[in-house]
Design a protein around this nucleic acid. Structure first.
Lengths: 144, 144
DNA sequence: TAAACATGTAATCAATGCAGTTACAAGAAC
DNA sequence: GTTCTTGTAACTGCATTGATTACATGTTTA
């Protein structure tokens, strides 16, 4: 099991749009940087657009961020690309036997724990923004 | 995407073995409580055995916990049933274009963040033991 | 206005993982 | 030695992922 790379690609796309501000970032251009097919990029950009993170127009090349770098959290991107459903990171077997002490109670015992674990993971993304990503990339670039 | 229910079932199995101490918990019996096939239970129990959490003997019904309830963390179970590989909860697209500022640096920028998110999630399980689970189930039982 | 280029989206495909099921070898106990 | 158990392997249907092709629709520009 692994969470879809749509999340990583989404971050890549947004960082690239910002760092390539001077020219239009077409889906073809972005696909070259990500190393995948342009249709894959367009699909993910459609999700980012739907979430209000970027502005794109049919027929016109490129996209621009809807908000400042510091106003786009990694959690925003995570939700946009729909890689994990709300409180469904962990699956729980259903219909355990109701006449068994464990079967009767296991779901309500485990659910809040799984929710807490998922929340702890998501909080990491809430505390980071695209600005952190872009600055890190720029810092690495200046060293070389 | 969802993490395999093997984890939830693993917790169920271990709690049941403890709460059903007086009689032998055969794979058939456990399967009834979990509501699945006995072969599925045996497969998961094989993983728990391999991880040193339970003792089972081929041919003899039932299993017993290898350690005290308080000495078995949910993280131990999580690792035992192998639902998420080490530092691979999130997948990252590979071979981004090396001639691009973003492509060149995105992996090393994102990787530590994904690792931190996974660690935050796993820490929740490190801080909980089977004892917490069993006590919660018992508490619910006493209310009813 | 027509050709060239862009996005949006649907359909298809191979690969993978999950969970259920059946089957059976090997061990244990009565 | 019959019966019950665990341990495994093989196969199934199903869902998701990511790549790919194709094409309708919109925009630009020559």
């Amino acid at each position: 099991m692994s969470i879809s790379s749509r999340f990583a690609v989404g971050i890549h796309i947004l960082a690239l749009i910002d760092l390539n501000k001077e020219t239009a970032s077409s889906s073809e251009f972005i696909a070259g940087s990500v190393n995948t097919n342009a249709a894959v990029i367009r699909k993910i950009m459609g999700m980012l657009k739907k979430a209000g993170l970027i502005e794109v127009q049919p027929g016109v090349a490129g996209a621009k961020l809807s908000r400042a770098l510091s106003e786009i959290t990694l959690f925003d991107i995570y939700k946009a690309v729909n890689v994990v459903e709300e409180n469904e990171l962990f699956s729980i077997h259903d219909k355990p036997h109701p006449d068994c002490v464990v079967g009767k109670n296991i779901q309500s015992t485990i659910e809040p724990i799984f929710m807490a674990a998922q929340s702890a993971m998501e909080k990491v993304f809430q505390n980071l923004t695209l600005e952190d990503i872009v600055k890190d990339i720029e810092a690495k670039e200046h060293i070389q």
